[in-house]
Design a protein around this nucleic acid. Structure first.
Lengths: 211, 211
DNA sequence: CGTATCCGATACACCCATGTATCGAAAGCC
DNA sequence: GGCTTTCGATACATGGGTGTATCGGATACG
């Protein structure tokens, strides 16, 4: 049917990938709002002709870039949650998901730029919401396997609500991380928040005043 | 001593304020990264001469704008937390602070732009961290008055840790709010998260599996 | 009310990014 | 290996934002 398929695709694919990689670095370093098409091309070692042959606008490139990396992250998270036993061990799962979610600060920088971008473009917002929905799904899936083993605080509602809370904690910790750039502290905080939210007391004795 | 004080300051103050107000609107609508000096001036009803007479760069205006509004918000929060009785009623405080924190979506938009801006400029980051510290302080102050009345989950550590968690929940809910623009849903979620974090069970019966 | 100072508007020159059109070269297909 | 198609580099035209210098009118002060 479609005889108009492109003949040359190998070189094109390489340059496209290189442009995306270069864009990621430049976006992380300077921020999407302060990056020009030329800068991306220069970082990738190409001329603007290559860019316009692959993308119509910087926004389009950013969109593609985010989609690619977001898929990767989603897969990593799902993988991290799938690779433990059939029964849920909350602290272990929390540890594992924390490692994956707070792995690369550059990604968080780019992701936040994308969030800002999404607040002004409904189509972009939908893509971001989709990504978040996939994340929540993976988490909810994992949590649902815990029913019968662990209790969830009632305020959060059902399993889906708990997944929502997990993502919110992730977002909250990310904000602070972007400002102080302390990945380890962020991981520790995320663990604390998640155990506080999911285990309804953290399994530790309550903190009471001493006077 | 300082005889070089300006003689004319009334008109200047007005135009400066108008420029800041106009910038707030334009930033909220289009995003800091996509706004030019000319646009701000046009929105304010001034020419570029007025701008360069008051600010050296758009960054400088943004910095001043944020500082002004952040002070306002901090005062509102402190006020909201101070105006109830000497004893802490957690749900009531949560309600009140939720109202104040999620009042104006435009402010959240601008604040997020400022966050992105801060991730690339250490001086800006310091200003934002300062604002956050003030917020946490007000919250910790309020929480410390609750000691002896309410217990806090141990995972969060001391009162300061709890304040940290409150801010994280706020940030997390904000992210979702920016995407779906549903203020009421965001308020509900923030309340749920805060009660889950602060009251260690939410005062409601636990959610247990039914099979 | 006169005057000195300040403020903001206008005009100018400059730079930089964008987008397009063209062309040589690389890559795939036979 | 020759031929066709595609890809990306170069050159050009354009627009738009920036920053500065200058000038007229507004404002405060005596």
């Amino acid at each position: 049917m479609d005889d108009t398929v492109k003949r040359v695709t190998r070189r094109r694919g390489r340059t496209r990938a290189r442009l995306l990689d270069a864009a990621f670095e430049v976006f992380a370093a300077k921020g999407f709002g302060r990056v020009s098409i030329e800068e991306v091309c220069e970082a990738a070692g190409y001329s603007r002709g290559a860019f316009y042959s692959n993308f119509a606008t910087l926004d389009e490139l950013f969109f593609a870039l985010y989609g690619e990396r977001a898929d990767l992250i989603a897969a990593q998270v799902a993988d991290a949650l799938a690779h433990d036993g059939p029964d849920l061990d909350v602290p272990a799962s929390v540890d594992r998901v924390t490692e994956v979610l707070l792995l690369d600060v550059d990604w968080l920088l780019v992701k936040t730029d994308f969030l800002v971008h999404a607040t002004r473009d409904p189509a972009v917002a939908r893509a971001l919401l989709d990504h978040r929905a996939r994340l929540r799904e993976a988490i909810a899936d994992r949590l649902s396997r815990a029913r019968g083993h662990t209790e969830l605080p009632a305020v959060l509602g059902d399993v889906d609500g708990a997944a929502h809370a997990v993502v919110a904690a992730y977002d909250g910790v990310t904000t602070q991380l972007l400002l102080d750039r302390d990945v380890e502290a962020a991981r520790a905080w995320l663990k604390r928040l998640l155990t506080a939210l999911l285990t309804d007391g953290g399994g530790a004795p309550r903190h009471t005043t001493t006077h």
